Structure formats: structure tokens, C-alpha cells
Amino acid sequence: MDHNERPAHASSFGAAAVEYAEHRPDYARTAVRWALEPAPGPRVLDLGAGTGKLTATLVALGADVVAVEPDPAMLSELRRSLPDVRALPGSAEAIPLPDASVDAVLAGNAMHWFDMAVAGPEIARVLAPDGILAGLWNLVDDRAEWVAELVRVGGSAAFGPRDTPAVWRVETAGMHLPEAPAAARFGSPEQAEFAHGQRRTADSLVATIATRAGVLVMPEPERAATLSRIRTLLAGGAETARGEFTLPMLTGVLRVRRL
């Protein structure tokens, strides 16, 4: 993605906040547990929380969660669906929390939007010693032939560089965490992947893909044509033509410790 295109993509989700809340998948609980496993305590920041997809899983696992989200429409959906969660306006580059106030910072399908030159030190500031930073991404499992064809037909707008496992491994392995100020540093990153899936129909899968940033920023004729190609593919597929099916997925996790 061109550097000048990132802000438009990153800020595109608010216009589809209701659809995002309805159609985007949650995260594999095994993945979230693994992300939190080394954390020194239960206090978790969901950073770039969107409509609360990851937040809800953290709550279900018993974490003491605070959510931070920059987009007002996304934050409104989060507050509507999870009224008991403390949810604050803010960003990865300006986190509205005190120093050393959380044991883990998790980001669901969000870390690639952060300006890590600024966000890295800011995350280190709010993390307690030995705290965990983890990014989670939901990936479509293109080892299934029909999913590989879906990715091909959808193109780079519908399926970006972190949406399939093989490319995700390379992209996230190369993510740079800048040195934080003072004594705070991050350790070596660890990657892991966990089986996941989402029950969909052809219509609801098209609706899900329509909430992806690359599709949201398309000119309307191009967007309609892309979604029409996907709809035609699903209508003709043995796995997807009738009723509900499972979209095979993986939740990928990148985890580092604050030293």
C-alpha cells in the first residue's frame, strides 16, 4: 500500500461500523489465551478495538479490559454492544492511560495501522514490566482450494498482504518495534497460528468482504464489480452455493514481551 493511501484506508471503517460489527469474525479463543499466557496480570488494553470483536473475547476469558479506539462510530458500536467495558477515545500513538497501567496490550487486525515509531514507545509506557504486546490477525485459510480462488477473484483490495497465512508470516516477522525510551525494550517476537472459522452464507460472506478497507475506499463502480465477481464465484461453488458453510480461517498471533 502506498504511504499516502494508509490514512484513507485506516480511517475507512467508521462509515461501515454497523456492518463491521455484524459481519466481522471474532478471534479464536485459543489464540487469545496464547497471546495472554505470559502476561504478569489480568489488566488488558485492547488497542484499536474497533467495534469490540476482540474485546468481547477478552471479557469472556475473564480479563480486566479497557478498550481504546480512535474512530467515533466504531467506538459507539463497541459501547452499544459492550456497555460494561471501559471504552475510551484514543489511538496507539496517544494512549489515554497512565504509565505501567496494563499487563498486556492486544490489537486485533489493527497493529499494521499503527505508526510504530510513535506507538512503540507509547505502548511500552503503558505496559507494566514483563508485560505483553500481541497483535492478532484473522486470516483466510487459502489451503482450501475454494478459498484460494476467492482470494484470487477478490484481488488485492479485498484480500491484503496480511490476509493469508504464508504472506502474514513474512509481513509480521518483519514488523519493527522501535526501542522505547529509558529502560523499556521489547524482546524477540514469537508467531503462532490457531485454527478458526466463521459460519457464513454467500450473502453474508460478501457483506463481510465489503467491510475490508480496500473495498471501502474503492470508487463505487469498481466496488460493485468486485463484489459481483465474488458473489458469482460463491453462487457457483459446491461448498458455498447453498445455505450456510464454514469459511476456514486461522488466527495468527505476533507476541513480544516488554523487558
Results as ranks from 00 to 15, higher is better:
2 D>T: 05
3 H>Y: 11
4 N>S: 15
6 R>G: 03
6 R>H: 08
7 P>N: 10
9 H>C: 10
11 S>C: 09
13 F>Y: 15
17 A>I: 01
17 A>Y: 07
23 H>V: 11
23 H>F: 15
26 D>E: 13
27 Y>G: 02
28 A>C: 03
29 R>H: 14
31 A>V: 01
32 V>Y: 07
32 V>M: 13
36 L>F: 06
42 P>D: 13
49 A>W: 12
51 T>Y: 11
57 T>C: 11
58 L>S: 01
59 V>H: 09
60 A>E: 15
61 L>Q: 13
61 L>I: 11
63 A>I: 04
64 D>Y: 02
66 V>A: 01
67 A>D: 08
68 V>T: 00
68 V>E: 00
74 M>Y: 10
77 E>L: 04
78 L>Y: 11
79 R>M: 08
79 R>Q: 14
80 R>Q: 09
81 S>L: 15
81 S>V: 06
83 P>Q: 09
86 R>H: 13
87 A>V: 03
87 A>R: 09
88 L>F: 07
89 P>K: 12
92 A>G: 15
92 A>T: 06
94 A>N: 14
96 P>H: 06
96 P>E: 11
99 D>S: 14
105 V>E: 02
106 L>G: 02
108 G>F: 08
110 A>D: 06
112 H>P: 08
120 G>D: 05
120 G>I: 10
120 G>M: 13
121 P>D: 09
121 P>H: 12
121 P>N: 13
122 E>H: 08
123 I>V: 15
124 A>L: 07
124 A>N: 04
126 V>T: 05
128 A>H: 06
129 P>E: 02
129 P>F: 03
131 G>I: 11
136 L>W: 03
138 N>E: 02
142 D>W: 08
143 R>C: 09
144 A>F: 15
148 A>E: 06
148 A>S: 08
148 A>M: 03
149 E>S: 15
150 L>Q: 10
151 V>W: 00
161 P>F: 05
162 R>E: 09
169 R>F: 04
169 R>H: 13
170 V>Y: 07
171 E>Q: 15
172 T>Q: 09
176 H>N: 07
182 A>I: 00
183 A>N: 05
187 G>N: 05
189 P>H: 09
190 E>T: 10
193 E>V: 04
193 E>P: 04
194 F>Q: 06
195 A>S: 12
195 A>G: 10
196 H>Q: 06
197 G>H: 14
201 T>S: 12
201 T>M: 04
209 I>W: 02
209 I>V: 15
212 R>I: 04
214 G>P: 06
219 P>L: 11
219 P>W: 12
219 P>M: 02
220 E>Q: 14
227 L>S: 04
228 S>P: 00
230 I>H: 01
231 R>Y: 01
233 L>Q: 02
237 G>M: 10
237 G>F: 07
238 A>H: 12
239 E>W: 10
239 E>M: 02
241 A>Q: 14
242 R>M: 10
250 L>W: 04
255 R>Q: 08
255 R>F: 10
257 R>H: 08
257 R>L: 09
258 R>L: 15
